[in-house]
Design a protein around this nucleic acid. Structure first.
Length: 332
DNA sequence: CGAATTTGACCAGCGC
DNA sequence: GCGCTGGTCAAATTCG
């Protein structure tokens, strides 16, 4: 299913060793198995769409009332509002783009927990149960691409590596991580692009059922690497700037780090990038969307109207055919 | 010594 | 049914 034509669609701001370059909604992977979703699929899915990394990692979904989906008016028909409105964030179970979905998602989380409990029971009963859960429910997934020398990007949560596999058509192995927090079943996969070894694709699956762990100053949010982030220090851990969306209570819970951080360009907020990306109607769409989120009066001007998505450039016309079909399938 | 990582084996889904 | 591939498990090993 690999399609190499997408490798060049991910634009990364030049001059940064670590930078967000794209976010991809993975929630639409329903009809295929998980294994059908290769790296290039990630590159194709949800291109130009999806929330900023802020949203994905630290912001509960904005309910439709607060964020009417622009999909119907701006987006091509093949794009579903689900894709735009986003994937559930990994942070909270109760987050969703609709009340119905919220309930579903909550159920999913509960189901996941029950599943874990079942697995534990099985472990006790047998030494090697090798769980058998027919039709496992797939957690919502999304992926983003970063340009980084390090594979495992630090997003504030604690991850435990539980596997590594060689990937077909790629010289780089894929690593599997699981959130170390008990009862939190969030997983993520990390793999390096075979086409551009400097880029790392991180795929999150599931939603965190807990706040972002409070970490000692300097350990997570204020990474030493982060300090050198903009200086081309190279090899820095992934850094997510502080969002200022007004979803405060949860937000405060979810963003213990980056909080006191002064963020200066690493992220390419300069006019060049802006104008470039603004040329894409989808980029504009995103900016509009982000503005809806933003309204905190105390918001930092750094990120307002300058979503990370400005770093993403991908002509809508390049959307992969298969993806369109996939999304059409979902609409039905 | 406990936690995290590594790594080979196993399992499941999919295509042929 | 079989082979391929992705995903997970868990014992062994390494690390702090």
């Amino acid at each position: 299913m690999a399609n190499s034509t997408f490798s060049d669609q991910v634009m990364v701001p030049a001059g940064f060793s670590t930078s967000l370059s794209g976010i991809y909604d993975m929630t639409c992977d329903e009809k295929g198995s998980s294994s059908s979703l290769g790296f290039m699929d990630m590159l194709g899915i949800g291109q130009d769409f999806g929330p900023s990394l802020f949203d994905l990692l630290h912001t509960p979904l904005t309910p439709p009332q607060a964020l009417p989906s622009p999909a119907s008016s701006v987006m091509p028909e093949s794009m579903t509002s689900e894709v735009v409105n986003t994937p559930a964030t990994p942070n909270s179970c109760s987050i969703s783009s609709s009340s119905t979905e919220a309930a579903n998602e909550e159920n999913q989380c509960k189901a996941a927990e029950e599943e874990d409990q079942d697995q534990e029971k099985a472990k006790k009963q047998q030494l090697k149960p090798k769980k058998k859960n027919p039709k496992r429910q797939r957690e919502p997934r999304f992926a983003f691409v970063t340009k980084s020398e390090v594979d495992h990007l630090d997003d504030g949560y604690r991850w435990r590596k539980y596997g590594q596999k060689a990937v077909k058509n790629s010289p780089f192995p894929r690593s599997y991580y699981r959130c170390t927090t008990a009862a939190c079943g969030v997983k993520k996969r990390v793999e390096r692009s075979s086409d551009d070894p400097s880029t790392v694709v991180t795929t999150y699956e599931g939603t965190h059922t807990h706040p972002c762990p409070v970490t000692p100053r300097g350990s997570i949010g204020m990474l030493p690497e982060a300090a050198s982030f903009g200086g081309g220090g190279g090899g820095g851990s992934f850094l997510i700037p502080q969002p200022h969306y007004q979803v405060q209570q949860q937000q405060q819970q979810l963003q213990p780090y980056f909080h006191n951080q002064t963020v200066v360009p690493p992220f390419n907020f300069n006019s060049t990038t802006t104008s470039t990306n603004s040329s894409s109607p989808y980029a504009n769409l995103f900016l509009q969307q982000e503005r809806r989120f933003v309204p905190s009066p105390s918001s930092s001007t750094l990120f307002r109207d300058h979503g990370l998505l400005q770093d993403m450039v991908a002509p809508p016309g390049q959307m992969r055919k298969e993806m369109k079909e996939e999304q059409l399938d979902q609409k039905v």
